[in-house]
Design a binder for these strands. Sequence first.
DNA 1: TAGATTGTTAATCGATTAACAATC
DNA 2: TAGATTGTTAATCGATTAACAATC
Lengths: 213, 213
Amino acid sequence: MLKNKIPKPSLNRITCYLRFLNDIKKNNQGTVSSIDIANYMGLKPIVVKKDLAFITSHDGKPKVGYKTEQLINDIKKSLHYDIVTNAIIVGMGKLGATLMSYQGFERYGLNIVAGFDAHPSVVGTVVNAKRVMPINDLKRIIENNDVRIGIITVQRESAQLVCDQLVAAGIKAIWTFAPIHLNVPSKIPVKYEDMAASLSFLSNQIKVIKKRG
Amino acid sequence: MLKNKIPKPSLNRITCYLRFLNDIKKNNQGTVSSIDIANYMGLKPIVVKKDLAFITSHDGKPKVGYKTEQLINDIKKSLHYDIVTNAIIVGMGKLGATLMSYQGFERYGLNIVAGFDAHPSVVGTVVNAKRVMPINDLKRIIENNDVRIGIITVQRESAQLVCDQLVAAGIKAIWTFAPIHLNVPSKIPVKYEDMAASLSFLSNQIKVIKKRG
DNA sequence: TAGATTGTTAATCGATTAACAATC
DNA sequence: TAGATTGTTAATCGATTAACAATC
């Protein structure tokens, strides 16, 4: 139970542990060891043990492991999946509409309140039972619904403007799919979902392997 | 010019530098300093300098910086954007179709050859001028077109099976959007595009800030 | 020349991995 | 009890940051 701030890589891994734990819970496996998790994830047990130390509320038992359900609850709590956070999506293109329709977000404590778009032809439509509203309503909706997270799926050219509007409306965090760096006050965390960067990683890996082979 | 293997965080940042460089090239800015890039990215110049040292083919000039065009070419080369890599997408749901329609991939050297789906109702349709084919054709298409990257956009439940089929067909790298850990031979790099992990990061940040304030 | 920016080497920081005593 | 797995402390590794001489 180290309980300091959780390192970013640990946070990422813990998210994946949760999915495995939910699976084995379904199979009525009451306890789970760091070795079990490590095997599933292709990691070394020490990594898992260290990660879990950040989030467990009770000690695991030597020779047995952790109680599956307890571990699930601890993870959900430390990832804040137990608290519902409201979000909105700005940009109702293909990607925006896809995210609007994604059913899985609720499981992660994310509640999409509404969509926004600049084009009058899209405004007023309904995607996944959620209304698409004009940008003018941004501030009102954010304030009235305690919206914390703004998801940006507009084009690169509009992203900074949308970002500024979100910040002005009092958003707490930004999740952006637009391939451009955003200028925001340092208190507002930004998560970049960067396709290009992912691709770079892969093509770099492919090349490295080729060189070895 | 350090020229060892590029650290992963550097690779990510360099991808973003490229977008800025393309912008300033359009504005006819012939040279650029690490300070310029750092300002744009909200980084310290030393970070940029170190990153560029991994990929530059020519030295920058003190007091001046780097030649914009040369730097762009160096980055494109080290990220392999100059070589076209063929890819396929398996899973023609909303996300798969969105990726099929994404025009930007070409700029990153990625050429989507075809889509695949298990549902007969989808097979035979055309998305963004690319045909959707049955899974049975996977191996043939991959072999005949030198397809290197397999993009998985199927549901969680089918992801491992699809992954196995891709591996059996000789794929070189996997880019997956399914929220599940994949078992693959260690020589095949896998890039997980994990929405849940991104969300965790954000909600964690929000919480940290709250505690501070 | 003076000063800004370069490239590189050294110091610091944070995350991973190893080692090991504790204990079920 | 013996052995497996735990939690924690120490050692290693890699990335970031600082320092500084070189030079346009």
